[in-house]
C-alpha cells in the first residue's frame, strides 16, 4: 500500500512518515502543492494524506485537480483550520475524510486503515485466502492460526496480492505500491520478494503463480 503524504511541516511529516512506514505502508512525502500535483498526475497511490495550508499550491486546489482527473484515490485531509466551512468545502471537493490538527497518531492510523478498506470494498480489516488470514489492522498474517513471520515489505506484497486475489498483478503495480521514489527498484527486486513470500506460504498456504510477461497471481 503506497501513501502520498503532502505536508509542509517537516517535523510533522517525518513523524507521520515513520509511523505509517511502521504500519507497513510505503510512504512518499512531498512538502509543496505544486510538486504534489505533478506527482499525482504520474504516479499511482492507494491513499493521499493532504494538508491544506501548502506553499505554492494550496491543498484544496490539489484535491480539485486530482478529482478533475477522475482519480478515485481516497484522500484524508489534515489541517490546522477548524472551521466548519473548511471541512464542508474539503469534503464537497471530494475528500473522503477530515482530521483536524492536532490529532492522535492512533486516530490517523485508524482512519487510514478504514479508508483503504473502504476503497477495496471491505468492511473489516481481514483478508482471507483459504486458510491464509491477513489482519491489515494488526499487520499480522497466519496460516491455519499459525502466525507467519513476515517483514514489512513481504507483508505489504501479500496484501497487494490478496486484495486482487485471482487477478494478475503486474511487476510495475507491485513496484509502485511497494517502494517510494527514494527506493532503488529493479525487476529483480520484485522477483526476490515474491520468491521469499512464496516459500513462506508453502506448503500449507495458497500459492503464487507467475504469469510470464504479465506478473503474478495469488490462487484462492
Amino acid at each position: 500500500m503506497r501513501i502520498l503524504l503532502i505536508e509542509d511541516d517537516r517535523d510533522l511529516a517525518e513523524g507521520l512518515r515513520r509511523a505509517l512506514e511502521q504500519s507497513g505502508y510505503t510512504v512518499d512525502w512531498i512538502a509543496d502543492g505544486e510538486r504534489a500535483n505533478a506527482v499525482l498526475k504520474t504516479d499511482d497511490f492507494d491513499l493521499v494524506v493532504l494538508d491544506l495550508g501548502l506553499p505554492r499550491l494550496d491543498g484544496l486546489s490539489v484535491l480539485r485537480q486530482l478529482r478533475a482527473r477522475e482519480k478515485h484515490i481516497p484522500v484524508l485531509i489534515t489541517t490546522a483550520s477548524d472551521s466548519v466551512e473548511a471541512r464542508v468545502k474539503g469534503l464537497d471537493l471530494g475528500a473522503d475524510d477530515y482530521l483536524g490538527k492536532p490529532f492522535e497518531l492512533t486516530e490517523l492510523e485508524a482512519r487510514v486503515r478504514a479508508l483503504l478498506r473502504r476503497s477495496q470494498g471491505r468492511s473489516t480489516g481481514e483478508l482471507r485466502a483459504g486458510n491464509l488470514l491477513l489482519d491489515t489492522n494488526a499487520r499480522r498474517a497466519s496460516i491455519a492460526a499459525v502466525p507467519l513471520d513476515l517483514p514489512r515489505r513481504e507483508l505489504c506484497l501479500l496484501e497487494i496480492l490478496m486484495t486482487r486475489m485471482g487477478k494478475v498483478v503486474s511487476k510495475e503495480q507491485i513496484a509502485s505500491q511497494l517502494f517510494s521514489f527514494d527506493d532503488e527498484v529493479s525487476p529483480n527486486t520484485i522477483e526476490i520478494y515474491v520468491s521469499r513470500l512464496r516459500k513462506k506460504l508453502a506448503p500449507a498456504g495458497p500459492g503464487i503463480d507467475t504469469v510470464r510477461g504479465l506478473g503474478y497471481v495469488l490462487k484462492p
Binding site: 511541516d9 517535523d11 510533522l12 513523524g15 507521520l16 509511523a19 495550508g53 489534515t78 490546522a80 477548524d82 483536524g100 490538527k101 492536532p102 490529532f103 492522535e104 497518531l105 492512533t106
Partner: peptide
C-alpha cells in the same frame, strides 16, 4: 496546531 500535531506524533 501544526507544531502540536508534530509533537503529538513524535510523542506517540
Amino acid at each position: 496546531r501544526t507544531p502540536l500535531a508534530a509533537l503529538n506524533t513524535q510523542l506517540d
